[in-house]
């Protein structure tokens, strides 16, 4: 590594500039914490809402309905106004302990830097479970992706990864993917759900009907065939029958999982059920100098919920820095 010296020392370092991280950092600053730095690996602050080009965002925070990107912009502006410092397009590669400080090594275009912080808050968010981790059988053609990737294709780059995808899952995010497909003129060939019923509020399921997307419950993707692109998928149905669906993509939606790789790599005690670090009532991990804004304790949460969760953790971090938190 080229730059092993510590180049900045802060009171609080926040990893992740999504709604939780921005809520956390802004609140910390407002509570009087002298130096608050946010690092995020993306080039823009805002997290996943940056590429959710549809409403409704911001009711809780701004009292009005915004699209994801507009919402993300507002949250980031508010943090900057509060005096939060940012290092974007910066990846955390290591979390170490040196004396009383947590030392975080990062890399960006300007090389390897090291940040020393009295407290570290992880707000690394969630991602969807991809095909590989679902152990779905078959070949590895182009066109198999998650909703997050689809949104980035469509809203950040304006291109289409497929025309006739099969949509897997019925969580809220699956419905949002139907709208995203419309933006690129893609027509989903079907929407399939392994369970016997929808995984969102049932009236929402009017949307696929409205868009003419056939819906099949109790159906599971058991094979994907194609090369170089997806040609078809095989479904296994609850009654034991199987059927083939011609499609040029398979979109795996939902089954959100915490993005906990940094916590794992930092050696924090993990909760294997929830896939995130074990936390106490104040959001402290097994290293009491490291907090985590866990946003997945129920199912996937709205951006607004993540934002309030970040603010709640901020109060604990600020109290701890002032010596007002009980020992772990």
């Amino acid at each position: 590594m080229s730059a092993p010296v510590i180049d900045v020392e802060v009171e609080a370092l926040v990893v992740g500039a999504g709604p939780a991280g921005l809520g956390l950092a802004t609140r910390l600053k407002a509570s009087g914490v002298a130096s608050v730095l946010v690092v995020d690996r993306e080039a823009g602050a805002g997290g996943n809402p940056r590429h959710c080009g549809h409403p409704p965002f911001g009711l809780r925070e701004f009292g009005r309905v915004l699209t994801g990107p507009a919402y993300a912009r507002r949250l980031a502006e508010r943090a900057v106004r509060a005096g939060v410092a940012f290092r974007l397009a910066t990846n955390v590669v290591e979390i170490a302990r040196e004396g009383a400080a947590i030392v975080v090594t990062t890399t960006g275009d300007d090389g390897v830097r090291r940040i020393a912080a009295r407290r570290l808050a992880l707000a690394t968010g969630v991602r969807e479970t991809p095909r590989a981790a679902r152990l779905v059988s078959g070949e590895r053609p182009l066109g198999v992706l998650t909703t997050g990737a689809l949104q980035a294709f469509v809203y950040l780059h304006g291109v289409a990864p497929f025309r006739r995808p099969l949509v897997v899952g019925t969580e809220l995010v699956a419905l949002s993917s139907l709208l995203t497909c419309r933006k690129i003129g893609a027509a989903p060939v079907a929407m399939v759900e392994e369970q016997a019923g929808p995984q969102c509020w049932p009236p929402f399921m009017a949307l696929p009907r409205l868009l003419g997307v056939p819906l099949r419950y109790g159906a599971k993707v058991v094979d994907i065939v194609g090369g170089p692109r997806v040609r078809r998928a095989t479904l296994a149905h609850a009654d034991g029958a199987s059927s083939e669906v011609a499609c040029d993509g398979v979109l795996f939606t939902g089954r959100f999982t915490p993005e906990a790789s940094l916590a794992r790599a930092a050696g924090l005690t993990m909760d294997p059920e929830r896939g995130r670090p074990v936390l106490d009532a104040f959001g402290r991990t097994s290293d009491p100098r490291i907090f985590a804004a866990s946003v997945l304790d129920r199912s996937v949460e709205t951006a607004g919920w993540c934002w309030s969760r970040g603010r709640a953790i901020a109060d604990h971090v600020a109290a701890d820095l002032a010596g007002r938190l009980p020992p772990p």
């Binding site: 997050g148 980035a152 294709f153 291109v159 025309r163 933006k183 690129i184 170089p228």
Partner: peptide, 24 residues
């Protein structure tokens, strides 16, 4: 989840089987 769209942009015009095509 994070990089596929970016890779599609960086590889545009390079592969006979592209990662993405213009929208309809």
């Amino acid at each position: 989840f994070h990089c596929l769209a970016r890779l599609a942009a960086l590889t545009e015009g390079r592969f006979s089987a592209p990662l993405a095509t213009p929208p309809e």
